[in-house]
Design a protein around this nucleic acid. Structure first.
Length: 329
DNA sequence: TTCCGACAGTGGGGTCGCAAT
DNA sequence: ATTGCGACCCCACTATCGGAA
């Protein structure tokens, strides 16, 4: 009989550009776009929720506490993602953001925020005096599925994992505009706090050409060189619209090279029509240089989420750079 | 010897609370 | 009243280093 642990740092996935080749040795799950959360359930039905950094978020998501009742007096430690869904039924990190900072001020109220949270469960780390950290992935999944009814309940779900056939899984997530898949090696143990090769995240990333309309000086170790690019795209009316800043994906050499290329293009007046880069100190340039960025999605206000620089493009006139339509097939 | 994983440090879009302006 | 800042979430990425493979 082992006492229930109460401070498990979640195991993490390493990013990967491609699916693992030995398909059959892996299980695949949807990658949910929310906040990672460990739940500690005691035999009296008490719930404590803990974030990835061990912050107590019990009161932030009261709408997922219902999972304790489904356990009917059993002690458990569960691992999963707290997710908010939009009106179309897709996970919406933006909807979660408005309620994830509730701390001392009280209990987060889903009725007020309009974004009910759902606990999407994908691992079982402890149950009734037994630690499952050394059990295999499929053993833990089997126990999780046996512990909780497959259909889920109020405020929680247990989506199935799929052994093998990762390509089909990834294609399905892409068609549904989900974030991507997590591949977990069959037979692997749960290693708290580790980010190894046993879990891989393969994300659906988009690419987009954007026009550089300014740049921001670097800070700290990047003082004296280029910190980030302010970029934009042309809208249907031919107006140049701000689309966010891109400050990652650049080597030191590329920062210097871009600074040199942009210097002769500097202008006094912002080329962006309407919304502007909100950080002061932006040096504006004539919108002539085109670069390619990888990004997760467009935000509600038309900026890039998780943008990363991928290189300059010389094969397309800046004026032809527009926001690419997402084709749904 | 090579490579992996952990760390630190830059950069991004957000929200919230609080202090300075 | 506005602005800026830090603390939190999510993250991409570069650069470095020690130890495992």
């Amino acid at each position: 009989m082992m006492p229930r642990p109460d401070t498990i740092v979640p195991m993490m996935a390493s990013p990967s550009a491609v699916l693992p080749a030995d398909d059959d040795a892996w299980g695949f799950e949807v990658k949910w776009d929310g906040v990672r959360t460990i739940a500690y359930i005691d035999d009296g039905g008490g719930v404590r929720l803990s974030s990835r950094t061990l912050r107590d978020v019990t009161r932030v998501y009261p709408d997922v506490h219902g999972v304790a009742e489904a356990l009917r007096g059993r002690q458990a430690v569960l691992d999963g993602e707290v997710v908010a869904f939009d009106d179309a039924g897709r996970p919406s990190f933006e909807k979660l953001q408005s309620r994830m900072n509730v701390e001392v001020s009280g209990v987060s109220d889903p009725l007020v925020t309009g974004a009910p949270a759902v606990y999407v469960l994908f691992d079982l780390l402890y149950v009734d005096g037994r630690s499952l950290l050394d059990a295999t992935y499929e053993e833990r999944r089997a126990e999780l599925d046996a512990l909780l009814p497959a259909g889920g309940g109020a405020g929680w779900q247990v989506p199935a994992y799929v052994p093998g056939n990762g390509a089909a899984m990834l294609a399905a997530t892409k068609a549904q505009r989900l974030e991507g898949v997590i591949a977990k090696r069959l037979g692997s143990r749960y290693l708290p706090g580790k980010r190894g090769r046993e879990w891989l995240k393969v994300k659906n990333v988009s690419r987009q050409e954007v026009v550089i309309g300014g740049w921001l000086p670097g800070e700290g170790g990047l003082t004296g060189t280029l910190g980030a690019l302010a970029v934009g795209v042309y809208d249907d009316g031919g107006e140049f619209r701000y689309a966010g800043r891109v400050g990652t994906g650049l080597t030191l050499a590329e920062r210097h090279r871009l600074a040199g290329l942009l210097a002769p293009l500097v202008v006094d007046v912002s080329p962006f029509v309407g919304a502007q880069p909100d950080k002061r100190g932006c040096v504006f340039v004539r919108p002539e240089l085109v670069c390619e960025v990888a990004f997760a999605e467009w935000t509600a206000i038309g900026t890039l989420r998780h943008p990363a620089y991928k290189g300059l493009r010389h094969d397309k006139p800046a004026r032809n750079v527009v926001r690419e339509r997402v084709l749904l097939s």
